[in-house]
Write a protein that binds this DNA or RNA. Structure first.
Length: 679
DNA sequence: AGAGTGGGCCTTTTT
DNA sequence: GGCCCACTCT
């Protein structure tokens, strides 16, 4: 241990040092953006280990796999050895590990399946059929809307009725049937020996609540609990922490209420705001020195967030030197906005900047479309975060479905997917087949099933069965995947997709990934709970310098030298749908804050003045730009003149009839040419 | 009745 | 690009 010799006083500032040294008991660390939050946690973990705490006594909870990996890596770097045995991961992945141990107590097998969102939707569809809900006569919420409502109710621990009334007012008189759907959905999950993401959290809480011995054992094991991004915890997660810390109260939470952006999945900002009340004797520390951004960028962030009422007062102090004010760039259209960003990026590259040190952030995933066109046109390599993840791509999930039924023949969602792939088999036939499949106890039994289905479906089922028989003699994930690759599924892929070579390649990659794990169960858990594989793979494969495109949500915790925040127009950001929610507006502002504080050196806000296809919509700049003092920003005109639409001036234009139009009015398309004159 | 197909529609954020 | 719907075909 001596050769590691971490000199804490030298490597940490006094604020951080205090947390590391005095972090026993309940501790609240309010860590502003870029204040060395990760650094502080990792040093705290290293410190504990140096003090003789065993790795398996430390539980480190994060929200993303990325954050977990990064922290563990940094701890390893500090200590110059792997902290083997340390429990680190997302709430969901840690819950999964524990539940595998105790599944039988809760009425699941140790092999329970984890359902992702798509699986949940599929099951919900079946429930709709089963209850013969007439989805056509009256417009009924879609299965994904239903899943959203059910999930929110469970995470927020509110009655479903209340949630439906609030978030889906049209469905008020449908409450009873929605409640029945929710119950049916639960039944299906149980029969399938499956848990969805919410079940992982709810079940671990049940385990801790109702099994005092288990609670005691775990609480005594995890003597030191550290939680990152605590502002994003929901009621259930907060309770899990409380139960786990029962024996000792050593809970160190780190968070920034200004960056709480997950209320849509029932995060409770009150968890962090009221932490000191719930844990008497809480020591509170504040990290307010910002090591990331220039004073100009921080000035904007501080100004913006000060408009929020519900928060701990704080102001970030910059230590970087002055550079330049954030730019505000209005563009005539989404296409011009994209052109500007691409051009500016090339300029920065010419000045020696590297693409991987640049990011374009946006509110909603689909906002990036126009930009992607432009980037492709100009051969600017980019990496898209926030789209479909590797494990969510259709073909990967198809192949996975074969593997899943092999592991758990009761996995209804996987069966539905597989059967649906066969030509001649739709939801109705699939359900019929499932009735027989459901009788089987083992996978081998399924393979011997003699089924007579409809004439058209017969061939599909026979084909599938052949493959199932082949799979039945194998157990290793990679073998299973390669077997599928030589089955009727390959023909399906080839027939279905023009780009089937790429997709085959993906599946081959998938098999390579699977080779790392021999145990089927571990493999499936990893696939369900890991997000990163795709991104990691593309970077690894090319080693190429790539621009990053990301939703703001996914950018949290990351930083770049140059950041562009696009689509900062009224009606797009803040998202109109979000501002309908109770505290939605302030949360949108926090999102803006998160975006702003990602930038180290240069920041640009861009927005289109118009959008739409058949009708043209005029946009004001986003409120979040308008409410900032003019002198904090540098307006840029794409026409070499001061733009009419500087942030504090309304857009003033005239429509076809010469009528004056202000703000986000809709006007006819013939107006397009005039917009150009505006700039 | 149920499967398949073509076209019109919209798109918040995620483990 | 994905999802749902309406229409057509078996």
């Amino acid at each position: 241990m001596r050769e590691t010799a971490i000199v804490y006083e030298k490597e940490l500032n006094p604020e951080q040092l205090a947390v590391v040294r005095e972090g026993d008991g309940p501790v609240l660390v309010l860590a502003g953006a870029g204040s060395g939050k990760t650094r502080t946690i990792t040093y705290r973990v290293a410190y504990l280990l140096e003090q003789g705490v065993l790795p398996q006594e430390i539980l480190l909870l994060t929200f993303t796999n990325k954050a977990a990996r990064e922290m563990l890596q940094r701890v390893a770097l500090l200590l110059k050895r792997e902290p083997v045995g340390l429990w680190g991961g997302t709430f969901h992945s840690v819950a999964n590990r524990l539940l595998r141990r105790y599944a039988s107590e809760l009425g699941y097998s140790q092999n329970f399946t984890i359902l992702d969102q798509e699986d949940s939707h599929l099951l919900m569809k079946v429930c709709l059929k089963e209850l013969r809900v007439d989805t056509i006569a009256r417009k009924f919420p879609s299965s994904s809307t239903l899943c959203g409502l059910v999930s929110y109710a469970r995470n927020a621990q509110k009655p479903l009725r209340e949630v439906v009334e609030k978030r889906y007012p049209n469905g008020r008189d449908l409450v009873t049937i929605i409640e029945r759907l929710s119950e049916t959905y639960e039944v299906h999950k149980h029969q399938a020996d499956a848990m969805d993401f919410d079940d992982l959290l709810l079940n671990i809480r049940t385990l801790l609540r109702e099994f005092p011995l288990v609670r005691r054992r775990l609480s005594e094991q995890f003597r030191f609990i550290l939680v990152d991004e605590y502002q994003d915890t929901n009621t259930i997660q907060a309770e899990i922490i409380r139960l786990l810390s029962e024996a000792h109260g050593n809970v160190l939470i780190v968070g920034d209420d200004a960056q709480s952006i997950y209320s849509f999945r029932a995060a409770q900002i009150q968890n962090i705001l009221r932490f000191p009340e719930i844990y008497p004797g809480t020591k509170t520390f504040r990290l307010t020195t910002n090591y990331r951004s220039t004073p100009e960028i921080l000035a904007v962030a501080n100004q913006s967030i000060s408009h929020n009422m519900d928060q701990f007062e704080k102001e970030l102090v910059a230590i970087s030197r002055s550079l330049e004010k954030p730019l505000v760039v209005p563009a005539a259209s989404g296409a011009e906005e994209a052109r500007y960003i691409a051009t500016r990026i090339l300029e920065l590259v010419n000045q020696g900047g590297s693409l991987s040190q640049m990011a374009v952030l946006f509110r909603a995933a689909f906002h990036s479309q126009a930009l992607e066109f432009e980037l492709m046109k100009r051969d600017i390599p980019y990496e898209y975060r926030g789209g479909l993840k590797f494990f969510e791509r259709a073909h990967v999930k198809d192949v996975l479905a074969y593997v899943r039924v092999r592991a758990n023949p009761k996995d209804e969602a996987a069966w539905l997917r597989l059967l649906g792939l066969q030509s001649g088999v739709g939801l109705a036939t699939a359900q019929k087949i499932l009735q027989s499949v459901g009788q089987a106890q083992t996978f081998e039994e399924v393979c011997t099933l003699e089924l007579s289905v409809g004439k058209r479906a017969q061939n599909g089922w026979d084909q599938l069965k052949k493959t199932l028989v082949k799979l039945s003699v194998q157990l290793e994930p990679a073998d299973l995947i390669r077997t599928v690759l030589t089955s009727e599924y390959r023909d399906y892929l080839e027939a279905q997709y023009p780009d089937f070579m790429d997709r085959l390649e993906d599946v081959e990659q998938f098999a390579l990934f699977a080779e790392q794990t021999e145990d089927l169960q571990t493999f499936l858990s990893e696939v369900s709970l890991t997000d990163e594989y795709g991104a990691a793979r593309t970077q690894e494969a090319s080693g190429e310098d790539r621009l990053v495109l990301s939703t703001i949500h996914q950018a949290k915790g990351l930083e770049w030298d140059n950041v562009f925040v696009m689509h900062l127009a009224d009606g797009k950001f803040p998202s109109p749908r979000a501002t309908e929610e109770d505290a939605g507006f302030e949360e949108e502002r926090r999102l803006f804050y998160v975006a702003t504080t990602r930038a180290r050196k240069r920041l640009a806000f861009t927005y289109p003045l118009t959008s739409g296809y058949d009708t043209l919509i005029l946009h004001q700049p986003s409120v979040f730009l308008q409410e900032l003092p003019e002198l904090l920003l540098e307006p840029i005109s794409l026409r070499g003149r001061t733009p009419l639409a500087s942030p504090d001036e309304p857009v003033v234009v005239f429509d076809d009839l010469g009528e004056r139009v202000e703000g986000s009015a809709q006007i006819g398309k013939s107006f397009l040419r005039n917009v150009d004159e505006l700039l």
